[in-house]
Amino acid sequence: MNAKGKVFKYPDNVDTDVIIPARYLNTSNAKELALHCMEDIDADFVKKVSAGDIIVAGWNFGCGSSREHAPLVIKTCGTGCVIAKSFARIFYRNAINIGLPILECPEAAEEIAAGDNVSIDFDTGVITDITTDKVYHAQPFPPFIQNIIKNGGLLASLKKEK
């Protein structure tokens, strides 16, 4: 599994309220919700994002609410991966459960710049900044979590085990 695209860069502590403001949570329709992805931190994100693009952010990405709508809108917009220095734990869990690829890599998150072209190999955890020609190594997921992702999310995984 791979991802390749241009980078949108954000700071530390990007919270779920700016990823998908609660004023839109009166629906669970992913496509409708995705129209407002990142709206309160970057109103142009939805207009500019293309399939495969990559979000790069600082520490504690996805802090705040447990709303699964947050990873869901990022995925629905076509985002190929989120790379951050660290993730808030509920966001981390939700991303795995719904199948949004995420990688923790402080060095890559620090150095990769907005607009860079980046490619990712999820099997090896290798992140390549094509623009700067630099390579980073993210920690791959533990086997337990790899298994959930391989099966297509938590529920698909549970069904398979049944």
């Binding site: 705040g64 609410s65 447990s66 939700n94 938590l154 549970l158």
Partner: peptide, 29 residues
Amino acid sequence: GADSHTCTYGALGAFSTGVGSTDMAAGMA
């Protein structure tokens, strides 16, 4: 609980934590 403030019930001496909706669905099943 599919709400981040589910951690409230730790006040009673329970382990309680917030999760997302998929975890809630799996938990209910």
